[in-house]
């Protein structure tokens, strides 16, 4: 079991008390599997993703990634987890504006000490970015930026990939093309993929689906 989530609870301060975003969620994901996490806006999808990625800490419950309880890690440990084990693809791409495309792709792998130029080159080719390697993010279109973000994540060969609406900022045709590439490459690396999405089309492409409603598994 690569990922296992047990009775995870997360609240945020809100007017007149605390708002419960996740209310005792439990779930799991095996290596090499893909899972779609769906639900209405505010159902807690993104929060769950952030907790699994070590970007935030839960109030209660456990997140076990590859046998480690990340809720028990300190800031440093969570940073190491983000570097080495988990890769995140954001809806807003979140590329590093000061680095060019090739440096962006290589960035996380190099941070994780797993940089493989040949793999980078293959990823770039597969993502259709060979001609864009010297450009800066602001010079790219949205689809190109999202492909760079996917490349950056895959280049580090994380065991668990988290994607937050990876095609949400793209039109349908571009989104479908990017998704095809993404799933193909994930399968090639053998990583597990957890995707947060509104899109039924996207969810249908995953091995399984989990629907959240008001912080619980529906």
């Amino acid at each position: 079991m690569l990922l296992s989530v047990e009775t995870l609870t997360k609240t945020y301060p809100a007017e007149g008390g605390r708002l419960t975003v996740l209310d005792g969620i439990s779930m799991s994901l095996d290596a090499g599997r893909t899972l779609a996490l769906t639900g209405e806006s505010g159902s807690g999808k993104s929060t769950l993703l952030h907790l699994i990625g070590g970007l935030d800490v839960p109030d209660a419950g456990r997140v076990m990634v590859d046998g480690t309880d990340i809720a028990a890690l300190d800031d440093k440990g969570r940073a190491a987890l983000r570097r080495g084990t988990v890769g995140v693809v954001f809806q807003q791409f979140n590329l590093i504006p000061s680095l060019d495309v090739s440096a962006n792709i290589a960035f996380q792998a190099r941070l994780a000490g797993r940089h493989d130029p040949a793999w980078d080159a293959r990823l770039a080719r597969a993502l259709g970015l060979e001609d864009q390697l010297g450009k800066y993010p602001e010079e790219l279109s949205g689809g190109q930026q999202q492909r760079v973000a996917i490349g950056r994540t895959l280049a580090a060969r994380p065991r668990l990939i988290l994607a937050d609406e990876p095609t949400g900022n793209l039109d349908e045709a571009t989104g479908d093309r990017v998704l095809d590439l993404f799933l193909q490459l994930v399968a090639e690396t053998g990583a597990a993929l957890l995707t947060v999405t509104h899109s039924g089309r996207l969810a249908a492409r995953m091995d399984a689906q989990l629907v959240l409603s008001q912080g619980r598994v529906a």
Binding site: D75, L81, L95
Partner: peptide, 10 residues
């Protein structure tokens, strides 16, 4: 934020 998300501490 991306650099942080990619694995550096604050």
């Amino acid at each position: 934020a991306p650099v942080w998300a990619l694995g550096l501490t604050r």
